[in-house]
Amino acid sequence: MNQDKSFQKKITSMLPAGFLVLVLLPLLLLPLTSVFIYALRGGIRNLGAFLITVDVLFALRFSLIIAFITAIINTVLGTYAAYILSKTRFAGREQLGIILNLPVAIPNVVVGTSLLLLWGPIGLFGQMLEPLGIQPMFTPVGILLAHIFITFPYMLGTIKPVLDDLETTYEEAAYTMGASRWQAFRHIVFPALKGGLLTGALLTFAHSLGEFGATVMVSGNLRLRTQTAPLYIFSQFESGNIQAANAVAAVLAILSFILFSLILFLAGRTGKKRSRGT
């Protein structure tokens, strides 16, 4: 009797988790699996053939470069913004914080459209720049502008909580010992931020790597010039070349998975460090 009861209890306690797996598995994991199944349909060799075409190699390399530059620029900008928002007091600070986080709330396509309206050939600034021969839209610069805009809040969101947690007395202690503001930042604040900086940079990189909505607007989707990996997948799909699309999709999925694991690992490490009080 008792055994029956405990068995029943075990089953009941597992029900919520079971439900979660049943619902989420088809929602999340199955589509991902199907990408790999389709990609591997013609065998590994076939997959490799799809991946070493000029177009694919360009798109992948281009995506990685854009993501890398975006991550570097936003690491600097995001850290600066987080420092100002966290450590200085001024009127309108809260409002500025909301504005800086806005990109998360705006659909990426809208970001692309607004950038076109500003920098495009008929845009506000674009009109002025065109006679000078400067045309940022439909070039890598335009894509960079879009990616910096869209991924900006990720860096800010990772760094600001760390800075908020870092008591000002650490910096004050450094000041009383003779350190300038910059020395205090370099020796005290920056080392505390290291983990967050890496996590934020990886997060920015991952988001930039997969960005589609704004990129498709500002890049013009020009083959071997402005075509990123997600745009390549889209184009191949549209023209019915599903296996080529799947091959690149699988590569992107693996890259994202690696990045995501790294972020989780880093976040876990900083979390542990913080809870140890060091």
Binding site: E172, A173, Y175, T176
Partner: peptide, 30 residues
């Protein structure tokens, strides 16, 4: 005068020992 130029020693309530430095490095910082 800014705190850097006053040459005073300050012990904070939470001690604020720099967590990224060893004890020796902390003491040698100033």
């Amino acid at each position: 005068l800014p705190p850097q130029k006053r040459g005073l020693g300050f012990v904070f309530q939470n001690y604020s020992i720099f967590p990224n430095m060893t004890i020796t490095e902390n003491i040698e910082f100033g």
